[in-house]
Write a protein that binds this DNA or RNA. Structure first.
Lengths: 250, 250
DNA sequence: GTGATACATCTGTATGACAAGTTGTCAATA
DNA sequence: TATTGACAACTTGTCATACAGATGTATCAC
């Protein structure tokens, strides 16, 4: 049953075996390979196929039981009870600590914010545009001035939230708020390292201004492109800084 | 440390030891006995005090870690990370009944799936491509043949899920699963009306094939464009059908 | 004081064993 | 034939032990 592994990319360094097996099992459920109501292979079988101890398999199963994705009964087996998290779409708090998962979260953010920028360009009211501009200026001051690192992150988040708000679509705003909250601490750590290395966030300031200009001009295609570029670059910057941190630890 | 037990209510029959210990630990957190940030007693200590094996304690801790209430680190210990369950991104079930909110949900889906199509074109494995093609064919058969309405919706969802899966990014897959599940009933109602009006979903079949071809060719820009077009058109079709239903009701 | 080293302690993982519960088989029985 | 009941073959639940790997701390040398 090596095909259990086929879809799982090389797993994050530092992730425990329990984390890894949890991901494999979860993927088998959400991908539909194990439909809702179906029975899982026994823990012993899974342990053999995945080449880990039964201890690790039980750890993974117990987590997914806590999420409501699996249920088990002594003597019968374990079953898929739901193919989605009980409480909507959620990101595990520890996931942002794994660079691979973090990059995936950033990818999702990209998909969502690129289109948000386009909607914002089409629909932003004067008030929205003013807030976007204000957030861009605040970010500018925070980065070029002598403000603390925290102010920079907050201004950054404020800008992106303003763009999401300007879509006039509360789901964009809601999803951004959730992703932003999940990323806040990590962004803070990254920016801290950036400052230590001499600071490289002036690019981000210019990118914010460019996006704000495109939205103000009502050019949705341009807003899309500039947002894409900005998120690609800032994602690379963040991941680069975090890699420095992890390397420094070792 | 018998006071660990003092506040625990009589536990349900059939509850495993793991369930019981989970409740004890959870109570110690929410009651404030173990403040946020504090360190838990070691697993060995807890096992002794609670008179269970370390296995059971680990089971309980792993569940609470999955809930985001605890976090642990090898060599350091386990800590209280939050005294309340984390809330994710959620869509109210009644929102899909409002046409305006529904169109907003579809917009969010667009943002997410357009970029997913691009990632899929870049990263899809042979297995992914085969599944996408199979889902497109299944949709084809369901729409051109004499299958039920439900099969069509399921095949439609399967196609889009396959694309999300092909990103290799479980957050795209997870968000799609959530949005798809939220939309399933509404899509069913819309397609029912479409069939009643003479059927207009052959366009969607062709669009699916077009998308599949773009992904198979590895052309991410084309995949993006075609997915955007498809979601725009199918969104309009769905909303149009639903308006017919609402008009018929009145 | 400072840095290197050894040690104690914690979580993570593996292994083996047994208890407890469920399901299917199959023969004995009415 | 239909039903019962013992039994074997599974499953998950729990325990005990051992060791690996990571971390923090005390200790020693300089």
């Amino acid at each position: 049953m090596t095909d259990l592994f086929q879809a799982s990319a090389p797993l994050a360094r530092g992730a425990t075996l329990g984390d890894q097996v949890t991901e494999v099992l979860r993927h088998n459920v959400v991908s539909g390979a194990w439909p809702v109501g179906s029975m899982l292979p026994s823990e012993t079988t899974l342990a053999q196929d995945l080449e880990v101890s039964r201890t690790v398999v039980r750890e993974a199963v117990s987590r997914l039981k806590a999420e409501g994705m699996l249920s088990s009964q002594q003597g019968r087996g374990a079953f898929v009870s739901s193919d989605r998290p009980q409480m909507g779409f959620a990101i595990d708090k520890q996931d942002v600590e794994s660079l691979r998962k973090l990059s995936h979260i950033l990818e999702l953010r990209m998909g969502m914010e690129i289109e948000a920028a386009a909607f914002a360009a089409e629909r932003a009211t004067d008030a929205h545009r003013a807030e976007i501009q204000a957030a861009a200026d605040m970010f500018d001051n925070a980065e070029t001035g002598a403000s603390g690192v925290s102010e920079g992150v907050e201004a950054d988040l404020r800008f992106h939230r303003a763009v999401s708000d300007a879509t006039g679509n509360d789901y964009y705003l809601g999803l951004f708020n959730y992703l932003g909250a999940s990323l806040r601490e990590t962004m803070l750590a990254g920016r801290l390292k950036a400052v230590e290395r001499g600071g490289n966030s002036r690019d981000a300031v210019a990118e914010h201004h460019d996006i704000a200009a495109a939205i103000a001009a009502g050019d949705s295609d341009l807003a899309r492109d500039r947002m894409r570029l900005h998120l690609q670059l800032s994602g690379q910057r963040l991941l680069g800084n975090l890699r420095q941190i992890k390397a420094g630890d070792a």
